[in-house]
Amino acid sequence: MTSSQRPQPLFKSPHLLSIGDISPFEIVALLDLADTYVEVSRQIDKRHAVLSGRTQVNLFFEASTRTQSSFEIAGKRLGADVMNMAVASSAIAKGETVLDTAMTINAMHPDFLVVRHPSSGAVELLAQKVGCAVINAGDGQHEHPSQALLDALTIRRRKGRLEGLTVAICGDVLHSRVARSNIHLLTKLGARVRVVAPSTLLPTGIGNFGVEVHRTMAKGLAGADVVMMLRLQLERMTGAFVPSSREYYRFFGLNEEKLRLAKPDALVMHPGPMNRGIEIDSSVADGVQSVIREQVEMGVAVRMAVLDALSRNMPGGGNG
């Protein structure tokens, strides 16, 4: 796409808050646009000017390395001025509320706020009060929409489609925003989704989420096209949700033996950061079926697409 063309609107909402709120058509349009940015990112000259003059603030109330740097690189490749704010260390410690912090930054007229927060719904609360486009980079245990989009892009590029694929999401579904966003996205695009976890790590009412529920890897992985592992937080392993990390590894850790239950060409995915030897074995994480590093590459492309799409809804943007 060149800047002389008038880009099409992709997106109804001024924000990207959850996959639950967006239509399959919007998802496909974002993935198509992201495909073009994969190519851009592989060129020697990666600079684009679609966000020239725009300001993007990454507001992270929870520590993050990969998501924050991915959004930062995405913004910079599109020509935006990007600023990172790690709030966990400053304002919150002084007793300021999320909204106070957001309003302070809002007063500086950013065009994008990329927000991560440890509480479910916090990003949505903030989006109601600020005047710029808000992108949810993970809110508590609720959603992480750009992760689901990058996972879908990775699968679609490898398998050529999402519809009809069997995707097994394994591990701590209860506490995972990645799982919730992926369940929404994959079911909207016609994939068959299974969740595989001990019952203590499944949310109440999971049976009504439109997924198959399995309590053993043997059943959950049988014939799967994609095996998506989730990170198990260390604090969940000390007896409150599962008895120990070695017990968890024994029953739910992905190793070569368990992976053989899936289709021979099944993809192995993980949103990172990985606990090697707990939810995933190094031999599998680094094996031929793993697309874990590709997910990181797709992350940048997807976030470029999200920023581009949202900018088209802004005054002075593509549709403005």
């Binding site: 639950g20 479910s120 719904g121 809110d139 508590g140 245990q141 609720h142 959603e143 925003r177 919730r180 949310p203 109440t204 009412g205 999971i206 009504n208 989420f209």
Partner: peptide
């Protein structure tokens, strides 16, 4: 309330 809605919203029930 511990319910499907809590599960969807990612809130502890």
């Amino acid at each position: 309330n511990a319910s499907e809605i809590a599960g969807r919203l990612g809130l502890a029930g």
